Computed example of a mutant assay.
Amino acid sequence: MAENIAYVRHTFLPAETAPLADSTVIGWARKNLFSSLSNGVLTVLALSFILWYLPGVIDWLFLSAQWTGTDRTFCSTVAQGGIQPDGWSGACWAYVGDKFQQFMIGSYPRGEAWRPYLLAALFAILLVPMLIPSVPRKGLNALLLLVALPIVGYFLLLGGVFGLRHVETSLWGGLMVTLIISFIGITVSLPFGILLALGRRSKMPIVKTFCVVFIELIRGVPLITVLFMASVLLPFFMEPGNTIDKFLRALVGVSIFASAYMAEVIRGGLQAIPKGQSEGADSLGLNYFQKMTLIILPQAIKLVIPGIVNTFIGMFKDTSLVSIINMFDLLGIVKVSFGDAKWLSPVTPLSGLVFAGFIFWLFCFGMSRYSGFMERLLDKGHKR
């Protein structure tokens, strides 16, 4: 007897259009901004706040701002000895433009400015392919970026070899110092943080005790204390006549501080891995190194990407604390420029701080967005 398949449909139904409520601006706003009474009230308050302050902010930043000029008279009112009408208030971007090179490289000799700019170009050339997953030869790229570039940068910036003029680290400053300290801190803190996290979970008492004491001691004091100890107290424990460059002290202080925090982030990821993963690796006959590098650590690091990037962002912003040992990062060099009588006016300090804040935000926002991209790229096991 033939089977009756008259009820089976052989063609797909035509696609229906999206509901009107979701396909229009009004429908989107009703769903996302006014879905309830409380959401509607908060939306109205937020929009009122934006509409109240945004025009003034835009006017100060762009419309009434002074974009060109050679001294403070361009950013001062007539009553203050300048050319602007009384009551004028706007950003002084002419001051930022005049001080831009100082904000980038500090007091680095202007005739040698090509050296930090060349290093910055090499850094960008190596970093961009490292961040793009589809670019091949990541091992070689990492070797050049994390090992070769710091060595080249050391000789290129410090000089004294290959006919390059020697430039003391006390002349370094600006965004260059911020990026160098952040880059070295990130490069050092991640592997050392992994080692400390593994050591804290070790079954060897001496190793575990050392790691626990180190982590808790460093995490128990603020970074400014670590920098102060590295700069002021360390020379007392050295033989007379021997000293350590203060920039190197800052690098060491920031690196060990970030390593302690990174260790706890990595340890959180290790604890989140089910015990069955380790047992499965043992059943395959893998040794401890193979188990950690091939099975456990890749999963743990993937889980704690937000925490890792959060530590990197915090470290990037904390570089401003190196001013305590007379090393001036971007924020420090901006604050030093406030004393220049050539640009002394009521609006120049705020203009400089807004510029520095924007640069910090730009780098931190970039790290945050890339972190989100990597999370989505690696989130394979939780997708349906």
Rank of each mutant, 00 (worst) to 15 (best):
I105M: 01
Y288Q: 13
K342Y: 04
L37P: 06
L158Q: 06
G139E: 12
P205A: 15
T293E: 02
V177C: 07
K342S: 11
G269M: 05
T293S: 14
T17W: 01
G81P: 15
S337Q: 07
G111Y: 00
L171Y: 05
V207Y: 01
S134T: 10
Q84K: 15
V96D: 01
A260C: 03
N242T: 11
S320G: 05
D379E: 13
L126I: 04
L344R: 09
S189C: 12
M367P: 03
F365A: 15
F328H: 10
G199V: 05
F183S: 02
L157A: 04
I5E: 03
V252N: 01
T68V: 12
P298Q: 06
Q66I: 04
G253D: 02
A258L: 08
A79W: 05
G81W: 12
T311C: 11
G372K: 15
Q80C: 14
S36V: 09
I5Y: 04
S368C: 02
F12R: 11
A21E: 15
T77P: 13
L175Y: 01
G381S: 15
K317R: 15
K99W: 06
V232C: 09
G241N: 09
S107Y: 07
F34E: 05
V226Q: 03
L297T: 09
N242D: 04
S38E: 09
L61H: 08
I244V: 15
V135N: 04
V212Q: 07
F100N: 13
T11M: 12
F192P: 00
M229G: 06
Y370P: 08
L42H: 09
L195W: 00
V252M: 13
S35V: 09
S259M: 06
F162H: 00
Y288V: 12
K203G: 10
L144T: 02
I218D: 01
F289N: 01
L190G: 01
S107D: 08
K31E: 11
D329I: 02
S182L: 06
R165P: 00
F363E: 07
V309Y: 05
K380W: 13
Y261K: 02
C75D: 00
S345R: 04
D59W: 03
Q290L: 11
L297K: 06
V96K: 02
A2H: 10
L286W: 02
R110N: 15
K203I: 12
Q84N: 14
F123L: 14
Q102M: 13
I50F: 14
R72S: 13
D245C: 11
E279K: 07
T348N: 05
T187Q: 08
A79V: 15
L146T: 07
T311H: 03
P14G: 01
V336M: 15
W88L: 07
G153V: 02
K380P: 00
G280C: 09
L284P: 04
K275E: 09
K342M: 12
F162T: 02
D98H: 08
S283R: 10
A113D: 13
I184C: 06
A91S: 15
I266A: 04
D71M: 07
R249S: 14
K383L: 14
